[in-house]
Design a protein around this nucleic acid. Structure first.
Length: 512
DNA sequence: TTCCGACAGTGGGGTCGCAAT
DNA sequence: ATTGCGACCCCACTATCGGAA
């Protein structure tokens, strides 16, 4: 199959907003895809590269290449070239990667170039990623979409499922079962405003402490232990403490879901940045481990011995977890069997307050009867975290991309200093409706003092109320801190800039 | 007919490791 | 030694489609 066929399909998918049409276009292409090409073709149309990391990003792709007149690139040849790009290392690697990519682009037509640039840069913007690729695959082979999706969740790889389905048809779905040693996409949580809302939505539930660390999925088969991240990267080598902890469990075979976090001598959590840095360290793991040990805390169990627990309700999975896991390695939780009962509510609120007092991020509320929805951001897990707000001044705004092209989008936020100037604390583009984008573009252009095509600087007069999860240490911003997960709640046209929150107020939040 | 679940898009900050400067 | 870049952790929120209620 030619890359041109894939690029044309991508254009067709992008050209319609109807999901059914996108899926139909994908299915048409998959029907004419050979099994040997299936993994590459479907991964490309899901907006990803089979190589995952190539070492090539936007910066490397900047200089334009003269396009070829006729399409002649085969999909498998493109894949081979990108595998070579990914394999380059050592001195001269950047130049060598550039040469390979330039060669590839100059052999591509204009349409193919556009597709490749989006694909490699990670911004295909065709309105379809893995979710719709799965639907298209299901339609192409005549299998129920839910079953194909489940196979991808359990098999961990869209490409492998596509190849098997195109080679052998729907019977191949039976191959993709939960297996110890093969990572499963983890279940994710939605957000709730507060504990009451979460309990109202879920009914009988468990309230668990939410630790601010790194999600891990731990597979144990006898002495063999493997650890995977949320995106199924294997990080076993970096987490010797977790390997040890897994081997100490009272079980031979298991798949566990949990969080690793660095705790201080008193058992209080260290800042997320420290845990993250530790988990990211690959070169001197022994040294890093000695300096900043990690603790695994498990909250779910997907397999125990030869039993697959995915479809069992939360409370049964947790009972099994409790059977094989010692208390300190298990998440703290409170079961709220009857959330309508005022006493239960009071106990839940007290539990959540205690979790925060012990320095943790918040709570997760989980429906007691819900199965483990691998790979889904289901409504049966709800996270609740405290929210801070500040009234900050817009110092500048950046021109948006994609559907925000032509609108001022990303706001630079400042806090007031005693001398009447402002200190930048970070940026945000979140929380804005289309109407707000429209409005702020007009208002900010009215306040503009400069525009370099990327950033529009403005007179510091517009005040916005910003929500955020807390402060984190920053080497980028002058106050030494920045806002974590900042988002706009509303404009404060009623509030003059000289009454915006001060740097002093912001810094007082440290440690809070 | 209305509601709501799932998806895609739009980017935020930090950190590590590698290669270039 | 420092800097730029890519990759990957954490993530919130809105718009949209189309099936469920």
């Amino acid at each position: 199959m030619l890359l041109a066929d894939v690029a044309r399909t991508s254009r067709q998918v992008a050209a319609t907003s109807a999901r059914s049409e996108k899926i139909a276009a994908l299915a048409r292409l998959f029907r004419r895809t050979e099994p040997a090409e299936a993994a590459v073709v479907i991964t490309y149309l899901a907006g990803k590269l089979p190589q995952r990391r190539t070492g090539v990003g936007w910066s490397t792709l900047r200089q334009p290449q003269k396009p070829a007149a006729e399409p002649r690139l085969a999909v498998l040849d493109v894949d081979e070239t990108l595998t070579r790009v990914a394999a380059v290392s050592g001195t001269g690697a950047t130049a060598a990667r550039k040469r390979l990519v330039s060669g590839l682009l100059s052999a591509a037509t204009k349409e193919e170039q556009g597709f490749l640039l989006g694909l490699i840069g990670g911004e295909l913007r065709q309105g379809a990623l893995e979710g719709l690729a799965v639907e298209g695959l299901a339609e192409a082979v005549g299998a129920p979409a839910a079953e194909v999706r489940r196979a991808v969740m359990l098999g961990g790889s869209l490409g492998a499922v596509a190849e098997a389905l195109l080679a052998r048809g729907p019977e191949a779905l039976a191959d993709f079962r939960l297996e110890v040693g093969r990572p499963v996409l983890p279940m994710l949580a939605q957000s709730a405003k507060d504990l009451d809302e979460a309990m109202d939505r879920l009914g009988p539930c468990a309230v668990e402490e939410k630790l601010d660390g790194i999600r891990v999925q731990v597979h144990r088969d006898g002495a063999d232990v493997r650890i995977y991240t949320r995106t199924l990267d294997e990080i076993t080598e970096r987490l010797p403490e977790v390997v040890t902890a897994a081997r100490e469990l009272a079980v031979d075979r298991a798949i566990l879901d949990g969080e690793v976090i660095s705790l201080d001598a008193e058992g209080r959590p260290r800042p997320f940045q420290e845990t993250s840095g530790r988990v990211g360290s690959r070169l001197d793991v022994a040294g890093a481990s000695a300096a900043l040990p990690l603790s695994p805390v498990f909250f779910d169990l997907l397999v125990v011995d030869d039993r697959d627990l995915l479809d069992l309700p939360t409370h049964e999975r947790h009972a099994e977890l409790a059977r094989i896991t010692p208390g300190p390695r298990r998440v703290r939780r409170l079961v709220a069997g009857d959330p309508a009962d005022p006493e239960t509510r009071r106990a839940a609120r007290e539990f959540a307050a205690d979790v925060l007092a012990r320095g943790h991020e918040g709570v997760l509320v989980k429906a007691l009867e819900a199965p483990y929805g691998a790979g889904r951001r289901g409504a049966s897990w709800l996270k609740v975290k405290p929210v801070h707000t500040l009234d900050l001044v817009v110092l500048a705004a950046e021109w948006g991309h994609g559907r925000r092209t032509g609108k001022l989008s990303n706001l630079h936020l400042g806090a007031r200093k005693p001398d009447g100037t402002y200190l930048m604390l970070g940026k945000t583009f979140k929380g804005l409706t289309d109407a707000m984008l429209e409005w702020q573009t007009e208002v900010l252009l009215g306040l503009a003092v400069s525009d370099d095509g990327w950033v529009v600087r403005v007179r510091p007069e517009l005040v916005v109320e910003v929500a955020f999860d807390g402060l984190q240490r920053s080497s980028r911003y002058p106050a030494g801190v920045t806002l974590r997960f900042a988002r706009v709640l509303r404009y404060r046209e009623d509030k003059p800039a000289d009454q915006a929150d001060t740097v002093e107020t912001v810094l007082a939040l440290r440690g809070a």
